[in-house]
Design a protein around this nucleic acid. Structure first.
Lengths: 351, 351
DNA sequence: CGATAGCTTGATTTCGTTCAAGAGAAGTGG
DNA sequence: CCACTTCTCTTGAACGAAATCAAGCTATCG
C-alpha cells in the first residue's frame, strides 16, 4: 500500500484530505506544519507528498526546497495544494520541482487522479533497469504500456523486413524510432577499408535507432536485418514529444544513455587489452544472453562473419577460436548453430 | 533583435502587451486568434510566443499542441497568459509543454522578466555545442555563467592537486562534479592484467565526473592528475538539482550524452580496425586539439605511457611509431615534448 | 653523486591477419 | 530435379604487426 504524506496547517482540510485518501486505499500520514512535514518525510519516506503552500513558519516552497536538497527525499513526487483565491507563485513551485498543482476546493476525483498519475509515473522512473543496453528498451516498453507514451507499437503498422535488407544507412536522415516485433537486427559502423563493426544487436521486443533522434542528426551507423523481422516504425515526433515533455522521463533517459556510454567504455577496454580468445568468449556469452531465450533450444544462430564483426576480428580468426572452444568441449556446433556446453568454464575464461 | 509573437483575441490586451514588449526592445508581431497565431508562428519563426488560453475556435492549448507537433516550431519557448479569475487547466498546459504562465492582469515587469528568462534559457539550449566530449563542458559552462545553475566554480573553494594524485578511484562513491581550474586530468579504466585504458582527458575549464552522478552509481573508472591542477568540487546535489529540475536543461543533456556514446563508438571502430600507425596519428591530433592552446608554443607534453594508454597499445610500440613519424618529419621531439610539423600530412594519414 | 624513473632501440616471440584452397550448403535456372 | 553457380564455413601455410623481454641511455631528484 502506498504511503502518502499530507501537509496542511488547516486542520479541517488536512483531516478531510486524509479521509479521502484513506478511502482511496492509501496509507496516510499527516503533518500540521512544514517543519513536522519535512521531519516526517525524512523518517517515513512516503511514496508521495501533498502539501499546502500557504503555511506559517515554513511554507510549501520551503518544504519542497528542503526535500529536494536531500538525497533520500528528492525523488518523492510532490503535489501542491493551493486555494484558487490565493495568489500563489506558481512558477516558483514549478521551478522548485513540484510535479503537480491541485487547487482547493478540489474534487475528490481530481486529487485522486493526480495522485494516481504521479505514483504510476514514479513507479516507472524509480524502477531499476538492466545496466546494459537493454535498459532503454525496457524503459520505453514500460512507458508505452502504462499509457504515458502513445508509443505502444500496437498503435502503429508493422511491416515485414527480409533478411539482409537495410533498415537505415549511414548518412540518411533519421525519422523513426524502430520497434522489433520479431526477428533480429544489427547496427554497425563501416570502416574506410570496408570492414564493419557491429555496435549493437537487437531481438524481438527491442526498440532501436533512438540516438540520432535524440540528437536530431543523421544516422552515423547502418541497421540491417539479420533474421526475417517484423518492424514497427514510430514517427520521430511521437517519440520526441513523449521524451522531451516530461522531466521525469527525460531524467530517466539521461541515466539510461549514460549507461550506454559505460557499456561502450567497457567494450573499449576489452578490445584494447583482451586476447582474441577472451573477446570471443565474452561475445558468445553476451549473444547467448541476448538470443538464447529466442531459439528455445539454447543454441545460437549467427553467421561467422557477424560474430567476427561483433568481436572485432577477422572471420577466419573467429572460426579458429570457435574450433578451439569446440576441441575443449566448451561449445558444440551443429549445422552451424552454436550451443554452449559449459557456461561456467567460459565464464571463468572471461574474467 | 528577438522576435515575439503575441496571440490574444482581446484587442486591448493584445495591443497593450505588444506595446510593452516593443518598449522592451523586442520585435513584436501579433495574432488575433489561434489559427492566425499558428500560421504566423510557422511563417515568421518567432523566438518566443506569448499566448492567451481562452480564445474562441482554437484555444491556447490547441495552439501549443499544434506547435509542439511541428519540427520547426516545437522548440520555441511558449508562455501562457491567463486571467487569474479563469479556472484554467494549468496541469494540461504544463503537460503540453508550456514553459511558463503569467496571470493577467500582470505587471509589465513580471511579463518582461518571464520573457527574458525564457529567451536566455532558450539561447543556451539552442546553442550548438561541440560534437565531441567537450560539448557537455561547454554546456555546463554556459549554464553556470548565465546564472541558471548555481554551479559557477567561483562559488566553491578551489583545491590544489599534485601530479599523480588520485582524484577518485574505481568503486568509490561519487559525490562531486569536478571542475578543472588549471592543469590536466585523465580518467581511465583498469584491465585485469593491470593495464590502463584512458577514457577521457581534461584540461583547464573542463567539467568531469558527471556520469556516475547522473546514474547515481559508484565510480567505474579512476581519475588521476596528469599535471599539477587546481580542482573545484561541486557537490552532487547542486549539480543534480540543476540538471534534473529543468526540462530544457535535461533535454540538452540527453543530446550531449548521446554524443558521448557516438564518440565511444567511433573509438571502438578505430581500435578494432585501424593500424597502430593510424591510431597514434589520430591520438596525436586529438591531443593536439585538446592541449595545444595551453602550452602556447604548440607542443604537447605528455608521458609516453599515457599516450600509449590513450591509444590502447604498449608503451614501446607507441614510441616506435613516434620515432617513425619523427623520421618522416611529421613531428619533432624536443626534451620529450612533441610538436606537430605537418598537420596536413598527419591528417591525410588518418583518413 | 648515485639512484630512480622515464625514454629509446634491438632482438625475439607471439598472436592474429591474410592468402589460398577445399568442403559443404544453399540458392538458381534450365 | 539436377547441374550450376555462389556463398558460407573451415583448415593450412605464410606473413606481418605488435607485444614482450632486454638493455642502454637520459633526465631528474634527493
Amino acid at each position: 500500500m502506498k504511503k502518502i504524506l499530507v501537509i496542511d496547517d488547516n486542520t479541517e482540510i488536512r483531516e478531510n484530505t486524509a479521509e479521502i485518501l484513506t478511502l482511496g486505499n492509501y496509507n496516510v500520514i499527516t503533518a500540521p506544519n512544514g517543519k513536522i512535514g519535512v521531519e516526517l518525510a525524512l523518517k517515513e519516506n512516503p511514496d508521495l507528498i501533498v502539501c499546502d503552500i500557504m503555511m506559517p513558519e515554513l511554507d510549501g516552497y520551503g518544504v519542497l526546497h528542503l526535500l529536494k536538497k536531500n538525497d533520500s527525499t528528492q525523488h518523492i513526487p510532490f503535489i501542491f495544494l493551493t486555494a484558487k483565491t490565493e495568489r500563489t507563485d506558481f512558477r516558483k513551485g514549478m521551478e522548485l520541482g513540484a510535479d503537480d498543482y491541485v487547487t482547493k476546493p478540489f474534487d475528490d476525483l481530481e486529487l485522486l487522479t493526480a495522485i494516481e498519475v504521479r505514483l504510476r509515473k514514479s513507479d516507472i522512473v524509480q524502477a531499476q533497469y538492466s545496466s546494459n543496453e537493454k535498459g532503454a528498451t525496457e524503459f520505453i516498453r514500460d512507458l508505452s504500456s502504462s499509457g504515458f507514451l502513445a508509443l505502444d507499437p500496437a498503435n502503429y503498422e508493422a511491416e515485414p523486413a527480409q533478411k539482409k535488407s537495410i533498415i537505415y544507412a549511414e548518412g540518411r536522415r533519421s525519422k523513426f524510432l524502430f520497434y522489433l516485433n520479431s526477428g533480429k537486427v544489427k547496427t554497425f559502423r563501416q570502416h574506410e577499408n570496408g570492414k564493419e563493426y557491429i555496435t549493437s544487436l537487437f531481438s524481438a521486443g527491442d526498440y532501436f535507432g533512438y540516438h540520432p533522434l535524440l540528437e536530431n542528426t543523421n544516422y552515423e551507423e547502418s541497421a540491417e536485418v539479420l533474421e526475417d523481422a517484423e518492424l514497427v516504425q514510430i514517427p520521430k515526433e511521437d517519440f520526441l514529444y513523449a521524451v522531451y515533455n516530461d522531466l521525469n522521463i527525460a531524467t530517466k533517459f539521461i541515466c539510461l544513455i549514460s549507461k550506454d556510454v559505460k557499456h561502450k567504455e567497457v567494450r573499449l577496454l576489452n578490445l584494447a587489452y583482451d586476447s582474441l580468445r577472451k573477446r570471443v568468449a565474452k561475445g558468445l556469452l553476451e549473444m547467448y544472453d541476448k538470443f538464447a531465450s529466442e531459439a528455445g533450444d539454447g543454441t545460437l544462430t549467427m553467421s561467422r562473419e557477424d560474430l567476427a564483426q561483433y568481436v572485432g576480428t577477422a572471420t577466419e580468426s573467429l572460426i579458429r577460436t570457435l574450433s578451439d572452444f569446440k576441441a575443449e568441449n566448451l561449445i558444440e556446433i551443429k549445422e552451424g548453430k552454436i550451443r554452449i556446453l559449459q557456461i561456467k568454464k567460459l565464464d571463468e575464461l572471461v574474467s
